[in-house]
Structures are given as C-alpha cells and as structure tokens.
Design a protein around this nucleic acid. Structure first.
Length: 348
DNA sequence: AACGGAACCAACCGCTGTTCA
DNA sequence: GTGAACAGCGGTTGGTTCCGT
C-alpha cells in the first residue's frame, strides 16, 4: 500500500508557462506557502503536474532568485566549488545565494565549460590539458623554439605541480577575460608554460626515472610533445621530483623557495591587474567569513622580507568554512575566498 | 532581407533516495 | 515490512534569440 498518485497525468499542460499560470502559482504560494506539491496544482487551479509547479517556482518564480548575468566573483566561486564538488549543482547552488542549481548548471555548460576548454583546461578535472601545447603555439607565433631561458623558467615552475590550488588559481586567471585586449597579458604568457609544465609533471608515472623532470619529458625527442630544434638542457640543472604532503605547504621541500616561487608574484600581479585581487593573511584578514586556514599554511620564518605573498604565506582564504560537504581530501587544500579577494567592479 | 548555424536557457526526462500509507 | 509516490537531482531537449554571411 502506497501513497495516492501525485496527480492525474492526463490532460496536464506542458511547455512554457504563461504569465497567468505564473500569477496563479505565485498567488497560491504567497497565501499558503510551499506545501504539498501534489495537491497544489488542483488547489491553485493549474493544469500542471506538481513537479512542474515545483520546478517553475524553485527555478524561476521564487522571490529570492537573483536574475541576470553571473558576476566574476560568482563565476570564480562556481569554478572553485566545481573543482571540489563536481557536478553537484545543488550543493554549489547552496553556496551561491539567489542562484538555482539549474541556472548554475546552464551557465557552466554554456559559458564556463567552454571557456575552460578554450583555455586548455579540462572542465572535469580542472587540470590543464596536454593539448595545451597546441595553445602555446597560439601565444608564440609560428613554431615555438624555446630558449634556454624558457627552459629554465619551466624548471623553476616545476614544484608547483604539487600545488593543485595554485594550479587552479592560475588556470582561473588564465581563463579570466582581459578587459583591455583579447591578447594574453604578459603574466598570462608567463603562466601558460607553467601550466603546461605542471600538467606534464602530473602525467609523470608513479615511478619516474630518477631526476627526470617534466621539463625533461618536454624535451624528450620521442615525446608526443616533441618540438623541432629542442635539445636537452644541462642535466645538472635538473630538479628532482619531490613529494609534498599537506603539512609541507609552509615550505617547498627540497627547493630554494626564493628561486622557484618567483612566478607567484607574477601570478598575483596578474590577478591584481585584472581584478584588483588583494591578498591577506588569515591572521590579519578582517573577513567575517574568514576560514580556518588550518595547519600547514603559516608564514615561515625563512620567507624573505618583501615576499610575504609567496605561496606559503598567501592566505587562500576561502568561504569554505561552512562547506560541510567537503571531502576529507579537500581539507588539506589551500582555502581560497575569491569572493572576498576580488573586486570585480570593472569586470562587466 | 533571408538564411543557417551557434548560443542560450527554460523546461522536461529519468533516475535515486526518502517518505509514508 | 512493503511498495508506490514524493522530492530532489543531474542530464538532456527543444524553442527562441543572436550573429555572421
């Protein structure tokens, strides 16, 4: 024995809602509240299925729904949450007041997803794609013959393959529209090789050859990424791969941080240039929603003066303290609260 | 002006976990 | 305890609008 059928499925109207139907639904809910969707259509004199009424209300008629274009802030939040939650649109929507899961899903599929793909970022994994190498050719006209300086730069970026959130941040910034030109900024051009390199580093097999670096893979003549005219760099300059655990965030293991983190100011400069990104430490931030950055993210005493915004000290302060659904492996991630960090008034 | 393809988005479909008679 | 309906979710569709030719 079960419940009574929710509605008589014959003779029910489908398709777009009319203004009259909307008014009936709004008037009914205003008077009686959201109650039983099964009986609502009949009580409200609507020839619709209760499910259709619920959908119309939750996705369109609800008074607290925010219409209009997504802000840059909202977009960044979606990307960040999606990188953690995946296609859990309702969970993402719960963190974006006024936005519905349907709206976010549509926006993702029609805007963000395509933009990430264009930027060579996998919208599922949020990692740069190997075919980014093709994209690099767009930034450097004709064939790309990296100089020794380019290769050294690639090597310097290598440790960041171990920092997924920085990777995502850079991906986000690369994907961000430039307000003045369709051409990539200098910082974007600087970040792109890093993303390429970082992606390749992530592709390194579980047991890579000792001292083999992503940059070396980049250089392998037999590699699918082979480019004409490449030569191996001096092996003495090779950086060994190291393993990073969350508790090591405060110090890049095995590296001269000062050398390898030179891209970070560039990354932040880029963020600042495009959206007045401001960085704050978890200690000094006045943000009420300030998260508990937790263990591992602290200011190392070894951090050189004037480099307070290095990867180890920048507070990727996230509006994630209330996100109860975060998986355990997300707990160790840098927290990033772009909604508090980004002034996007000039984004539109 | 007409056409076709791309982009957009509201609404529907179908599945799953929960609720309740 | 059972099983049918509910509620909610993610995926997909199809109508409309936009834009380039």
């Amino acid at each position: 024995m079960g419940r009574a059928p929710c509605c008589d499925r014959t003779g029910l109207k489908k398709g777009p809602w009319t203004q009259e139907e909307d008014e009936k639904l709004i008037a009914y809910i205003k008077k009686h509240g959201q109650g039983n969707w099964r009986t609502l259509p009949k009580d409200a004199d609507l020839e619709r299925c209760g499910k259709s009424c619920r959908l119309r209300w939750t996705n369109y008629l609800r008074p607290d729904i925010k219409r209009g274009r997504f802000s840059f802030e909202e977009e960044e939040t979606i990307i960040q949450l999606h990188s953690i939650l995946g296609n859990k649109w309702s969970a993402i929507a719960a963190r974006l007041p006024g936005r519905t899961d349907n709206e976010i899903k549509n926006y993702w599929n029609t805007h963000i997803r395509k933009r990430l793909l264009r930027m060579g970022i996998d919208p599922v994994t949020h990692a740069p794609r190997l075919d980014l190498l093709d994209l690099s050719s767009l930034l450097k006209p004709a064939a790309y013959y990296p100089t020794q300086a380019d290769l050294d730069t690639l090597r310097a970026f290598e440790p960041l393959a171990n920092y997924p959130d920085l990777l995502r941040l850079a991906s986000t910034l690369l994907a961000a529209p430039t307000t003045t030109s369709s051409q990539p900024t200098t910082q974007q051009q600087m970040l792109l090789p890093w993303l390429i390199q970082a992606q390749m580093a992530q592709q390194v097999p579980q047991a890579p050859p000792q001292h083999a670096t992503a940059a070396d893979m980049f250089l392998q003549p037999s590699s699918a990424c082979q480019m004409p005219g490449l030569v191996h760099a001096n092996p003495a300059q090779q950086l060994h791969q190291d393993h990073v655990v969350a508790s090591d965030y405060g110090q890049l293991p095995g590296y001269d941080n000062q050398l390898e983190l030179d891209y970070v100011p560039a990354l932040m400069q880029m963020a600042s240039d495009t959206s007045n990104l401001q960085w704050s430490s978890p200690v000094t931030s006045s943000n009420n929603n300030n998260c508990n950055v937790g263990s591992g993210v602290s200011t190392p005493s070894s951090s050189p003066a004037g480099r307070v915004n290095s990867a180890s000290t920048a507070a990727f302060c996230a509006n994630t303290s209330n996100i109860d659904a975060f998986s355990a492996d997300a707990a160790g991630l840098f927290d990033m609260h772009l909604s508090d960090l980004l002034d996007v008034s000039d984004y539109m």
